[in-house]
């Protein structure tokens, strides 16, 4: 994996993580916000400026790709690179979780 990309994206912001996580299925900006709202019980509401900026940046960096346009909305989906980043980040979060529960990583 590209080390530079890794350094920029890991650890991810909460917004970034949920966007990338949701894009394992094709979706558009507002659709992602709705899904994240559901997943977090309304705790995390991603606003349009933040969403637009994140999608543009992730697309530019190759983590997600534009798939098609539907009623003036752009749909995106995660790429291979994006999946790799997501996996690395998930492993980090899982380790964090395990350690917080007092379980040693090696044992």
């Amino acid at each position: 994996m590209d080390e530079k990309i890794k350094r920029v994206y890991i650890p991810m912001t909460e917004t970034g993580f949920y966007i990338l996580f949701c894009l394992q299925e094709e979706n558009h900006g507002y659709g992602i916000t709705q899904k994240v709202r559901q997943m977090t019980g309304g705790e995390i509401l991603i606003s349009p400026g933040t969403m637009y900026g994140s999608l543009s940046k992730m697309e530019k960096d190759g983590l997600i790709a534009f798939t098609r346009e539907e009623e003036k909305r752009k749909l995106y989906q995660i790429t291979e690179l994006g999946t790799e980043i997501l996996k690395t980040e998930l492993a980090r979060i899982e380790r964090l979780y395990r350690n917080s529960k007092g379980v040693s990583v090696n044992g």
């Binding site: 912001t13 995390i44 509401l45 606003s47």
Partner: peptide
Amino acid sequence: DDMSIFSDNESKIEM
């Protein structure tokens, strides 16, 4: 309702 077009500090800084 959310009153800002930005929901985190990172995107405010980015702008």
